[in-house]
Design a protein around this nucleic acid. Structure first.
Lengths: 173, 173
DNA sequence: CGATAATTGATATGATCCATAACAATTATC
DNA sequence: GATAATTGTTATGGATCATATCAATTATCG
């Protein structure tokens, strides 16, 4: 990027011309030193998370599912008959923000809101047949194309250790 | 319609028409089952990252430094004399978004933009004296109040293993 | 040399999240 | 039965992220 210039600037203080200038020889090694940054938990966590989400989106391109949408489908499948507040709160999603998300999933016929009979304020959430089918395919894609990469990269034992440590951080930090 | 169920109380005991108060669904243990979610890399990564950032902000409340701002100060300290494009790109920050960030740091007299003498398009970034002092205090706070929590939670060996694995993911996933 | 392309910092702008307040309908509480 | 609380929803603002574009400057190349 910064190579030695051919034509130097005209106006220069005569005294420190040699040292005030660029030590163009080895001045800028093109790659910056991360230094302590590469040991900062937050920094490396964030970078890893971005990479993982990016890979997830690529793997799920055919199904058009984001990580958040996938987590909703998983949770509704595992806990059918729960209402929006319950599903949203356990995922850390605020109720107002969950509405548009459900609108999306429902418009694609992946899940459905059903009026609860014993509390007509709340909407019960269930997966549609299509939602179940899509989720099944999504799980396969995630397992074969996404999570498998972790094993390939870290090995089975390290992968489990990593998930365990991250869970511990998520729950106890 | 692909929805098979019409109400959530499909499995209810006949005689139990008890107008259950809020726990009409006593079959619902109040706490949802996370299921496969707790094994999903992306899910646990994101949750851990949010917790870590949250803790970081609390630890840095006295200095009013966000994780991103801290990373900028660290990188500028380690690589003085680089321009905005270089600093921003190695942090994964887009140049347009880096402008307001620098405006903030510069308005607080933590770092300064200096017109480069050999390329008058670019701005060289350096820490001010105050910036160096604040960064020194920030490092201490991070080490004693933030990163120390990791050792306390995982132990030194596991902490290093975790950082290593996350770095590997960030770089090779 | 001089015309053209490329780079740098900056602005404007839009998309996507994330968070809070408030409201109608319904239910719980006293 | 009056009042408070809850549920889903809307509106709204802030923060983050991405793209297009511009003026100034520098690089490239004919």
């Amino acid at each position: 990027m910064t190579v030695s210039k051919t034509a130097e600037k005209s106006s220069e203080k005569p005294g420190d011309a040699a040292k005030g200038r660029k030590d163009a020889a080895e001045a800028h090694p093109e790659a910056l030193q991360l230094g302590e940054l590469s040991e900062q938990l937050g920094y490396v966590l964030k970078r890893a998370q971005l990479k993982v989400f990016e890979n997830f989106l690529r793997c799920m391109a055919s199904l058009q599912l984001t990580p958040a949408q996938f987590s909703v489908l998983l949770l509704v499948e595992k806990n059918p008959g729960r209402n929006q507040t319950e599903i949203a709160s356990t995922l850390g999603i605020l109720r107002p923000n969950f509405v548009a998300m459900l609108d999306n999933l429902e418009s694609r016929d992946l899940c459905a809101r059903i009026r609860s009979t014993n509390d007509r304020r709340s909407h019960i959430l269930v997966l549609t047949d299509k939602g179940k089918a899509v989720l099944t395919r999504a799980k396969k894609l995630v397992a074969t194309k996404h999570e498998s990469r972790l094993n390939q990269l870290l090995g089975q034992a390290n992968r489990e250790a990593l998930i365990g440590m991250l869970s511990k951080i998520a729950n106890e930090f």
